[in-house]
Design a protein around this nucleic acid. Structure first.
Length: 718
DNA sequence: GACCTGCTGCGGTTTG
């Protein structure tokens, strides 16, 4: 290691070496960027591997990104070479020659993606068996990326299938910068005995975070280009761009925004500004629609560190290759989750100096008839709430994923294809046995298989002796190149009104008949939902123009974030980290909170609608919206509650007083539409999907009952 | 109205 200029082992590396060499336990190593956690895992694992006799692949390193595999390959290759251990990259773009050689004589280390493991198990089971037989350890990088979403369920299944090939269960080592929910991570690593997992945390490095929240107000609505030019005013994003230009230019930084559109708009304003001042360009956009070449050029430039560079990015830069030393992180728009915020902060790895975080908040211009939700200055309030939760070191726990049925079906198809056939009880035991991370009741599994059989979506057939086989549709599905990944790529829903196609929208959340969606500057009421054809039949809604509060749906808010927002509004202290604009927004929000009487009222009239303010997170609000829809109302969900359309508070109070507690989720699930959101859900029995939705949401039933009870007690006084 | 992630095997030809 001295060759790399290291003087000694860092604390986390010392701990990892002792933990890995000292016991056979699974290990999680939590440490920030550039902390040397890859080496911390590999040094002891390679030491053990070097001592093993006979051939065979010893270590499998799994990454969610191809780019990360290439990066780690460059770092590990010299180390492996010195130890005389071969190392092979294995992903779709990796060179074929070394892969072929590895299959011929398996040895050393392989760096691979989950999808490529799937490819091996599915298409070349004999090669896979030969490759994995002597496996000694499995390293999962960016572990937190696998703790939510279908890909984590998928990888958990793949590792069980690999374990079945090997003689002993290979030891697992997980690497992660931030793990909000360490318990969930331990369960994922080792479902049989999660408490046996050694969790190693690097000591909190550096002197903490220096942060600021800056507030910017949009010009009055309807202020056209002329007026803006006349008053010398500009929109909030331009002012934010100016501040970023003046303060971030000359160093390396990361600026995050929630949408590709905002990223492009901000990068464009920064480019304009650089041209105007006749200075070299150093602000560049980075998001999923940009070519790999453009993105890589930017990443390389950041890492090289010889030209000042600021990347303006979506979540693309949250994961992945080491970006080198970064002076500050800018966040345009208040954060929505602490896990995201921490992830972004963690990307600014700079030893010895405090991390710098600037949160830029935009609020609308207010006039007397502004919507009450706008008057509350919720962006600013959410930014303050997130900073408080950051200081309290809280992170969202992971939630149950809605793609379990899809993953179960996917893995069943893969098992059948790789083995030529499988019996249902054996498949169930392999995928959902007592020691599996995934659980699926045998009766539900039977329904899943039946729904995919000849009477259902026709993917599966059963031979007379009970063996499950692929049907024709199943063969086609498994043959497709698209099969390897279990996650769905963006799908557009067609919005149709009276037979006329209005356009397409990407839609990820479930909704119900009576949901209101905004499109092309108007509001539309959902009449029917065709899950399979992906068509939403809508009619123009009476309320016509889009109200200001109808913001695009976004990452879900957790209960604790909205509860903290309520605390921030009820409080009197003004945090010093707010700039003048931010302070003003916070005071305005608190004034509105008092004037609206939100400390004792929850139903707030807004034009012809009524806002129900619950101060609960997205999950509770969506269930509440379904309860109200099932009572015949038209409802939209917003960040701190729901909005019932075209009813007065009195009318709404009457409905709420008639409603008893929250109905059983089983009953409510009848009113949920658009349930088929995961990749293979089109092939899953609908009543099973409803039951699974109900089971997943059962935990919110008491919360919704509680909200309804609260509403009844506050409206009784009207 | 958000965002992100990955991908075969074979037969033919060309190249070192």
């Amino acid at each position: 290691m001295r060759d790399e200029g290291w003087t000694g082992l860092r604390e986390i590396q010392d701990a990892a070496i002792r933990s890995i060499l000292g016991s056979g336990n699974d290990v999680i190593i939590m440490a920030g960027t550039a902390s040397g956690k890859t080496e911390a895992a590999f040094l002891p694992l390679l030491t053990e591997a070097a001592e093993m006799t006979g051939g065979g692949l010893r270590l499998l390193y799994i990454s969610p990104l191809k780019a990360l595999i290439n990066d780690q390959f460059r770092r590990l290759e010299p180390l492996c070479e010195r130890l005389g251990i071969p190392i092979t990259r294995w992903h779709g773009d990796a060179p074929q020659g070394p892969k072929t050689r590895l299959l011929k004589t398996p040895s050393g280390v392989a760096l691979i993606t989950p999808e490529s493991i799937e490819g091996l198990l599915l298409r070349r089971p004999a090669d896979a068996a030969k490759l994995f037989r002597g496996l000694h350890g499995i390293v999962v990088d960016e572990l937190h990326a696998f703790l939510q979403g279908p890909r984590g369920l998928h990888l958990a299944c793949l590792l069980r299938r690999v374990d079945r090939i090997t003689s002993g269960r290979p030891r697992r080592v997980g690497l992660s910068a931030t793990l909000g929910d360490a318990d969930a991570a331990c369960r994922w690593m080792n479902a049989v005995n999660p408490q046996s997992v050694d969790v190693l945390r690097a000591p909190q490095s550096g002197p903490g975070v220096r942060l600021q929240i800056r507030g910017y107000e949009e010009p009055p609505e309807g202020a056209g280009i002329d007026e803006i030019a006349e008053n010398g005013a500009s929109d909030a994003l331009s002012q934010i761009a100016d501040h970023i230009f003046l303060n971030l230019r000359g160093s390396n930084n990361l600026a995050f925004a929630a949408s590709r559109r905002t990223v492009e708009a901000l990068a464009d304003r920064l480019r304009e500004r650089s041209e105007r001042d006749n200075v070299p360009e150093e602000f560049f956009p980075h998001h999923g629609s940009l070519s790999k070449e453009l993105r890589e050029t930017l990443e390389t430039r950041l890492k090289a560190g010889d030209q000042p560079t600021t990347a303006v990015a979506t979540t693309t830069l949250e994961l992945g290759v080491d970006l080198g030393s970064v002076q500050s992180v800018a966040q345009v728009g208040a954060p929505r989750s602490l896990s995201g915020l921490k992830q972004r902060l963690g990307r600014s790895g700079r030893r010895g100096t405090p991390a710098v975080l600037r949160i830029y908040v935009r609020e609308d211009h207010l006039d007397p008839d502004s919507d009450p939700l706008d008057k509350l200055r919720l962006e600013t309030v959410r930014a303050v709430a997130c900073v408080q939760l950051l200081q309290a070191n809280w992170v969202e726990p992971s939630t149950e994923d809605s793609s379990l049925a899809t993953v179960a079906l996917h893995q069943t198809l893969s098992l059948i294809a790789s083995q030529g056939g499988v019996r249902a009880p054996a498949a169930h035991k392999l995928l959902f046995g007592r020691d599996s991370y995934l659980s699926f009741a045998p009766t539900d599994y039977a329904d899943l298989l039946r729904g995919a059989g000849p009477q259902g979506s026709d993917l599966l057939e059963q031979s007379p002796d009970g063996m499950l086989m692929l049907g024709k549709a199943g063969e086609e599905l498994v043959q497709a190149r698209d099969f390897y990944a279990v996650f769905k790529t963006d799908e557009e829903w067609r919005l149709v009104s009276s037979g006329r196609t209005l356009g397409t929208v990407p839609l990820t959340n479930v909704l119900g008949i009576g949901s209101l969606v905004g499109f092309a500057g108007r509001r539309w009421r959902v009449e029917t939902v065709d899950d399979r054809a992906k068509v939403l039949d809508v009619i123009p809604h009476r309320s016509g123009k889009l109200p200001r509060f109808d913001r695009p749906a976004n990452e879900q808010l957790h209960d604790r974030v909205t509860a903290t927002m309520l605390e921030v509004l009820s409080d009197h202290e003004v945090p010093a980290y707010l700039d003048a604009g931010g302070k003003q927004f916070l005071l305005q929000g608190r004034n509105a909170f008092r004037e609206l009487g939100l400390d004792r009222r929850a139903l707030i009239p807004a034009a012809r609608d009524t806002h129900v303010i619950t101060w609960r997170g997205t999950a509770v609000n969506s269930v509440l919206s379904i309860v109200l829809m099932s009572a015949g109302l038209e409802v939209a969900v917003h960040d701190i509650g729901v909005t019932a359309v075209d009813v007065t508070p009195d009318q709404l109070a009457a409905v709420i007083h008639q409603a008893s507690d929250c109905p059983p989720m089983e009953d409510l699930s009848d009113f949920v539409a658009g349930l088929r959101t995961a990749k293979l859900d089109d092939f899953v029995d609908e009543s099973l999907l409803r039951r699974m939705w109900a089971a997943r949401h059962e935990r919110y039933r008491d919360d919704v009952s509680h909200v309804l009870e609260g509403l009844r007690s506050t409206t009784a006084m009207l």
